[in-house]
Computed example of a mutant assay.
Amino acid sequence: MKFELPERRKRVHEMTIPIRWGDMDPMGHVNNTLYFRYLEIIRLEWLRALGLTLHSDAQGPLIINAFCTFHRQVEHPGELLARMYVSDPGRSSFESWCTLERTDAPGVITTSGGATMVWTDYAAQKSLPMPDWFRRHVE
């Protein structure tokens, strides 16, 4: 299965994530639910690097849709290189994308995924236009 990122995208964050022994399931590979955790880790690290703190009385991005495609099995031990991209900013929403590849097999994407995110007032549970300072990071 070939994965293609959107042509108009911006890489916003990159990091390595260890593959832990406890991430594996009885089939001997990383359990499919853990990939969403890996995508969450890089997404939250990117937001933290921007200075965002996610509190229930604040504003920030909220996921409204998420997906993950498994291209190759991943087993312990090792590390994953996670790369996050953003695209298609709207009034309050944008798309986020992520690729995962083993650090010992550069260029071979094992997993791809992403999420549609909406800038939200968490307490009011309503979408808001993205603030200009944040929009600069996703355009």
Score class of each variant (00 low, 15 high):
Met1Thr: 03
Lys2Leu: 02
Phe3Val: 10
Leu5Ala: 06
Leu5Gln: 05
Pro6Thr: 03
Pro6Phe: 04
Arg9Ser: 05
Lys10Ala: 04
Lys10Asn: 02
Arg11Tyr: 00
Arg11Cys: 01
His13Ile: 01
Met15Pro: 00
Thr16Arg: 06
Ile17Pro: 00
Trp21Ser: 04
Trp21Glu: 11
Trp21Leu: 14
Gly22Gln: 12
Asn31Trp: 04
Leu34Met: 15
Tyr35Met: 05
Tyr35Ala: 00
Phe36Pro: 00
Arg37Met: 10
Arg37Gly: 07
Tyr38Leu: 01
Leu44Phe: 07
Leu44Arg: 10
Leu44Ala: 06
Glu45Pro: 00
Glu45Ser: 11
Trp46Asp: 03
Leu47His: 13
Ala49Asp: 15
Leu50Asn: 14
Gly51Trp: 12
Gly51Ser: 12
Leu54Glu: 10
Leu54Thr: 08
Leu54Val: 10
Ser56Ile: 11
Asp57Thr: 11
Ala58Cys: 13
Gln59Tyr: 05
Gln59His: 11
Gln59Ala: 11
Leu62Asn: 02
Ile64Arg: 07
Asn65Cys: 09
Ala66His: 09
Ala66Trp: 10
Phe67Gln: 13
Cys68Val: 12
Cys68Gln: 02
Thr69Ser: 10
Thr69Met: 03
Phe70Val: 06
Val74Trp: 00
Glu75Gly: 12
His76Leu: 08
Pro77Tyr: 08
Gly78Ile: 07
Gly78His: 07
Glu79Phe: 02
Leu80Arg: 03
Ala82Ile: 05
Met84Gln: 15
Met84Ala: 15
Val86Gly: 00
Val86Pro: 00
Asp88Ala: 13
Asp88Phe: 01
Ser93Ala: 14
Ser93Asn: 11
Phe94Ser: 06
Ser96Met: 15
Trp97Lys: 14
Cys98Arg: 08
Cys98Lys: 08
Glu101Ile: 03
Arg102His: 09
Thr103Arg: 02
Ala105Ile: 06
Gly107Trp: 08
Thr110Ser: 15
Thr110Gly: 15
Thr111Gly: 12
Gly113Asn: 08
Gly114Glu: 07
Thr116Lys: 11
Val118Tyr: 09
Trp119Cys: 05
Trp119His: 04
Trp119Val: 08
Trp119Ser: 05
Thr120Tyr: 09
Tyr122Thr: 10
Ala123Ser: 10
Ala123Tyr: 09
Ala124Ser: 08
Gln125Trp: 01
Gln125Asp: 12
Lys126Cys: 12
Ser127Cys: 01
Ser127Asn: 06
Leu128Phe: 10
Leu128Thr: 12
Pro129His: 06
Pro129Lys: 03
Met130Phe: 03
Met130Asp: 02
Pro131Ala: 05
Asp132Val: 13
Trp133Cys: 03
His137Cys: 13
Val138Glu: 05
Glu139Asp: 13
